[in-house]
Amino acid sequence: MAEATIDTSESTPVPTVVGSSFWRRFRKNIPSLIALVVLILLFAVGLSYWILHLSGVHWPADPNQPDPPAQFTPPSVGHPLGTDDLGRDVLARVLLATHISLLIGFIAVGISVVIGVTLGSISGYFGGWIDAIIMRFVDIMLSIPTFFLVLTVAALVRPNIWYIAIVIGLTRWMATSRLVRAEFLTLRETDYVQAARATGAPHLRIIFRHILPNALPPVFVSAVLGVAGAILYEASLSYLGFGVQPPDPSWGNIIAGGKQYILDAWWLIVFPGMAIFITTLAFYLTGEGMRIALDPKETKQI
């Protein structure tokens, strides 16, 4: 080799957003960091309360056990968030509903991400008439008022958690597919994809090795934001009586059950409402923090 020196005099490498640098950037966004901590607490509480409930340990009381003499007890030592019209403990019901909301949120988003990524990838990679057909299908899905579709279908079948999660997931994948398609359209033209094509790499290899890994970060962000949306959706459905069915508690149906007593028993509305608010806000702020940490344009400011 006539020329085997390694040049060290060149300009320093440009930092790119991968791995640990993501966390370093995310950490600097204090509201998002707090939101992430809140989310972790929510998970811990929701999961452990569910497990305790299943194993028969109840605190401060059995969430599904009516106690007529205690009905409409205001927040007190025995019932920190009060009791409802049947004398059930509101804190216990809100805590038990946590795992239901999170479960529905994640399953729904999981389904919508799988559908959205699959269709968006095919659409963006192959283009042409395949793209046209898939994107028109997306347009049709977007033009259907899905909330009323879900209500109609829910009226025909007795809803349970899984069913609700699946229906929400099946009607919320369109934004993801458009996002993934746009990423594919951009990444498909990059030089490293052209290089892979020039070596004769098959389509599946190019999609899974070269394009998808680079297209996923914005999908994670939209998925986290989507969980918040799905939780709100579930709360709305349950509020209208087409979601989680009593006596199983859900933040939406606790509010629905308490709405007629709003002037006398405010705690029936306020506490599950706060649970919805805090949870969705935490997801939104976390997602926003992820988005900023992944955005190369924000590099210079931090």
Binding site: T16, D191, G200
Partner: peptide
């Protein structure tokens, strides 16, 4: 496939031509 083994390409942009992941 056989032809591709014999013809290759080098790109202008040293950043965009390598998959960052």
């Amino acid at each position: 496939r056989n032809l591709r083994r014999q013809m290759q390409i080098i790109f202008q942009d040293p950043v965009g031509s390598l998959n960052p992941r």
